[in-house]
Design a protein around this nucleic acid. Structure first.
Lengths: 143, 143
DNA sequence: ACATAATATGTAGCATGCTACAATTATACC
DNA sequence: GGTATAATTGTAGCATGCTACATATTATGT
């Protein structure tokens, strides 16, 4: 088995490539892929309040990672944050006006990207890919 | 479509997870996953000389990325390097004794990891996954 | 009520990826 | 042969991931 044929290696190639291309496109919005994903999350969860911890759990990254991304987003005024008055340990995160404004054009970019990525695949193949990746994911998590 | 169901997002979760677990295991060898992958490459290409550029092309990363990894590997004496006398622009990279020594135990770890990752999948399913990922990869590259 | 444990966030330092710019050497062309 | 171009490597600075340690607040148990 050659290194480049291994699933883990291949997944890394794909992930690096997605991130690079996305970051090049998102540069026009002064955003990175990880930052944009946070904005999408906040947009999708407008009705409920979101804490830093919620973002850690959803994106499955450690808290120093989330803190870094949020600090950069807040410095650029895409989001704002405030301490929860009920539980002062908790910091709530909100989409700021600027974050809402870039949303439409970003959403369009996101949909066309996902579409290009999955072109030449049938609906069944996409479902199959999702289900296979889910199994792989479950396997690695239980190491 | 929810964010976590998107292929790109899912691939990132899997990649982060693989890298984290692998780095925890490889710590005993004083190596990271990216560093170990370089050693595997050098081991698999013992018969031919390898330049920095070869590694960039194989791993599809930029040259500053490769330089960083190689510098850390050389500082730890897993590899050594020398300027090509025929073409002084080129820097050749060799596996050092120390790099060869950790190889057996790493190889064992690598095989058992790949096995655990793909458990519960049939040979046909693995082939199907590889072929689907290959299509996705081709699609992103031609953006 | 008070000590202890758990939870949420913060900071420091590192590895790996990137872009942008620079330096050196080899190649190509007139 | 000399100049322009290409190829290879190097450096600086940043974003995002991590671990390890620290701090503040809340929850728990006696």
């Amino acid at each position: 088995m050659h290194q480049r044929d291994e699933i883990g290696f291949f997944i890394k190639l794909i992930n690096d490539c997605i991130e690079k291309k996305a970051n090049q496109t998102l540069k026009q919005f002064d955003l990175t892929l990880s930052q944009a994903r946070i904005l999408f999350y906040l947009h999708d969860h407008k009705e409920t309040t979101t804490s830093q911890k919620d973002l850690e759990d959803f994106f499955e990254v450690t808290h120093p990672t989330i803190i870094g991304i949020l600090n950069r987003l807040e410095r650029k005024e895409f989001i704002r944050s405030e301490t929860n008055s009920k539980d002062k340990r908790v910091k709530n995160i909100f989409l700021a006006d600027k974050g809402g404004k870039v949303f439409c054009s970003m959403d369009h970019f996101k949909k066309s990207t996902e579409q290009k990525m999955l072109q030449d695949l049938t609906v069944d193949q996409i479902k199959e890919l999702q289900s296979l990746l889910k199994i792989v994911y479950k396997n690695i998590q239980t190491f």
